[in-house]
Design a protein around this nucleic acid. Structure first.
Lengths: 164, 164
DNA sequence: ACGGGTAGTTGTGGGGTTATAACTGTTGTG
DNA sequence: CACAACAGTTATAACCCCACAACTACCCGT
């Protein structure tokens, strides 16, 4: 099956605890308070900054939101001078969103706050960290592989892209 | 210092990836859609179910919300027949919230959805799982130790409690 | 018993999130 | 070229989240 090694319940408990660790930090509030942006705005900004210029539909897919809400969020970021819309040469229907210099600065602050681990993580042994690194990489690869058909990150229409 | 082993940047990257894994799942919507409850209502219900009867202030502290909002959430759960308020014999100002039979059923469904790990986790080796278990335990213990003064989980006023 | 502090409730209000529908402009296809 | 499909925008409306103020009831130390 899918679990050659593992005991189903144990993996569920571990995932439960990892979720509790990540969600038990009230990072939404921490980021929002520090930056004066709602958590979703900050998240959108970090995605735009990290993944480079992208059409709105890619941002929407990445954030699990619909097109009108993506427009609202980007409008707000633009109004604050943190993002800009530019024409997409590959498809004139769409627009590429990219972060301004100020937006990149804010995004960096957001990531600095969010990515600060609980202090105990720094006390983990190199072997433990290596395991975390390996497992996280594997799962992330799997997850992004799973939805890559749904969310196009580049700005070109589907037809002009080559299959791998 | 606090990092006898580790390399600061690497622990940040790992934490970043763990966050991305947990948050990249859109569990809020999955739970809300499946149960017909907003994510926060479902979260409150699972806390009430998991931690047993607790005063509202404990629930509020656990969820990082204020007292009025806790009242709103519990009102809603009570109206749906998922929770009940009972007198707290130890302190007649406060009330203990506990889940009804139906509430426990819904809470179990919520946890079943939320705690379902990405399929790749089941493919981890027993050694990897053991490391995850150990690190998660350590960090969770640290985190809950950090705010234990702020959130009283039991129903007794502070004065009647024994120091450890 | 008085007075300060705490638990919970009620009300008000503002901002954030999200679905739906209607519309414009653009693209690819037959 | 006609037509369906798509990217994005606008508007509307419904909820949800959450802060603040004011209030009742109760606990505790003095």
């Amino acid at each position: 099956m899918n679990h050659p090694h593992g005991d189903e319940d144990e993996t569920r408990r571990i995932w439960h605890d990892l979720r509790e660790l990540v969600l038990g930090q009230d990072m939404r509030r921490a980021v929002a308070d520090a930056l004066g942006l709602s958590f979703n705005r900050a998240k959108a900004l970090t995605y735009i900054d990290a993944d480079g210029p992208m059409p709105l539909r890619a941002l929407a897919a990445r954030m699990f939101i619909d097109a009108p809400y993506a427009t609202v969020i980007v409008d707000d970021l633009v109004k604050r001078g943190l993002a800009e819309r530019t024409a997409n040469p590959a498809d004139r229907r769409s627009k590429l969103v990219h972060a301004t210099a100020e937006g990149r600065r804010i995004a960096a602050r957001a990531m600095h706050i969010q990515d600060t681990p609980p202090p105990g993580l720094a006390a983990a042994t190199p072997e433990e960290l290596a395991v975390l690194r390996r497992v996280a990489d594997r799962l992330l690869k799997e997850v992004q592989g799973r939805d890559e058909g749904a969310a196009d990150a580049d700005g070109a229409p589907a037809h002009s892209r080559q299959p791998v």
